[in-house]
Amino acid sequence: MGKVMVITSGKGGVGKTTTTANLGTGLAALGQKVCLVDTDIGLRNLDVVLGLENRIVYDLLDVLEGRCELRKALIRDKQYGERLVLIPAAQTREKDEVDPDQMLELVEQLKEEYDFVILDSPAGIEHGFKNAISGADMAILITTPEVSAVRDADRVVGLLESAGLHDPQVIINRLRPDMVRKGDMMDISDVDDILRIPILGVVPDDEHIIVSTNRGEPVVNDKKSKAGQAYRNIARRLLGEEIPFMDLQERNLMGWFRKVLS
């Protein structure tokens, strides 16, 4: 029986979809069978981040409403094939058309087959969010080290709690070590102080993310990217390995000069 994780954040634009794509790919690379579900009805995006947008025939609503067999709606990944599949969100319909019971039933079915079912939640705390969390056994919150994102994450912790998801973990995304060093950005310990939930990982802000999204190839495959390394580490932590957080500070002479001259 697999695990069902929901990736959520409250605030939009903090990296839920990118995280979903990269953790899914990272887990598949470690030999896990993974199914990704895009629950952001009307604002489908996980397909493009994975570079699978040309393969879509059926979507989540088609499956939920019985218009196609589950098997037919699963889009196989370019690299990992059967081991990493996507159920894309419907793009043409209204957000509140998903029935929570049907969603729950689908997730139960997927759990039988896959080691990890990862649900990419929509932003917000409305209907779509509630649907996305209804079938999950665990929640991963995404935040950036900014006031608005952390505030929304805190609110979501409360909502997850009342929905029975008691032990969420947080990924701090788009950390900028240079700004942390100058005292202009909250660090890991600051976010920890405020949210008081376990930190699953820290992903540095990284231009490689934009390039990889342009190409439709998750950055987790890019050995040169620091964000890719961070996602690889998180994937291993999800499998129970103990991996220390990456040291994001520059230790070289350039870093020292930049610090002095900033």
């Binding site: 006031v147 805190d154 609110r155 100058k182 005292g183 950005m185 102080d193 405020i194």
Partner: peptide, 23 residues
């Protein structure tokens, strides 16, 4: 010099007192 992080953290702390109480 002291960066803006301190302000961010302090403002967050205060706003969360309210948010958590109303939640």
């Amino acid at each position: 010099s002291e960066g803006s992080k301190k302000q961010a953290k302090e403002r967050l702390r205060l706003v969360l007192v309210h948010d958590r109480a109303s939640l």
